[in-house]
């Protein structure tokens, strides 16, 4: 397994957010992390990236326990995060945003610009002047520039126009076809399920269900994902 999360418990100060999340991603696999709002999806991702290190449980990446590592070390091991809310560096240009993150590997500036031609057009513009969709592309591009073994997408299409969403899903499918391992959080089931090899649903800070998309019955959906 590339990523193996077992029984993690994470706190925000005194309040506990995760009560035992189990999750795994194999090399080349796309895993969908699902759950209703506030169930702990983003907290799980922040725990994996060690932005909010868990207090209990174990996270192993490429066979190595990442306990005690600082966030930047985890990123260097090969976890590329596209954080919720398209967080770029607003006062840097598109090019600077990408170059700052660059690590050697197959992903280079020109390949990112081929994947997202709009970024090539806006290369010297400040990230703060981009549209929401372009900022999202930039955030994905920035994560890819680190040449991650695992790409984590947290709500990559939330709040974007349908046309832009389609573009982003197309690029996610391209990445999958190239063998990129991806852990993805998203609310659009219709797009997410066809791409996912496996799904993990969390409820109230615990892993409630794991399986392949075909096994995700209406009953499970109603119980764990319905509003």
């Amino acid at each position: 397994m590339l990523l193996e999360v077992s029984g993690i418990e994470t706190f925000y100060g005194a309040s506990q957010a995760l009560f035992g999340v189990d999750l795994s991603v194999a090399e080349g696999e796309v895993v969908a992390l699902m759950g209703r709002n506030g169930m702990g999806k983003t907290t799980t991702i922040r725990s994996i990236c060690r932005l909010n290190p868990p207090r209990k449980g174990r996270i192993a990446f490429a066979g190595r326990d990442i306990a005690g590592l600082r966030a930047f070390r985890v990123a260097r091991l090969g976890i590329g995060l596209v954080p919720e809310g398209r967080r770029c560096f607003p006062n840097l240009t598109v090019r600077e945003n990408l170059v700052a993150a660059a690590r050697t590997g197959q992903w280079t500036l020109s390949r990112i610009e081929a994947l997202f031609p709009r970024l090539a057009e806006r290369r010297d513009q400040f990230a703060s002047t981009l549209s929401g969709g372009e900022q999202q592309m930039l955030a994905i591009g920035r994560a890819l520039m680190t040449n991650p073994r695992l790409l984590i997408l947290d709500e990559a299409t939330e709040g974007l126009a349908p046309v832009i969403r389609r573009d982003i899903w197309t690029s996610i499918r391209t990445l999958k076809a190239e063998g990129q391992s991806i852990l993805v959080v998203d609310k659009t089931m219709a797009e997410l399920l066809p791409v996912a090899d496996r799904c993990t649903i969390i409820e109230k800070g615990r892993t409630a269900w794991t399986g392949i998309p075909a096994e995700l019955t209406d009953a499970i959906r109603d119980r764990l994902l319905g509003v």
């Binding site: 990236c49 600082r70 966030a71 990123a75 260097r76 560096f89 700052a100 520039m145």
Partner: peptide
């Protein structure tokens, strides 16, 4: 924090 997530200390 954003910088740390791209692997830079």
């Amino acid at each position: 924090q954003r910088l740390a997530t791209v692997g830079i200390a």
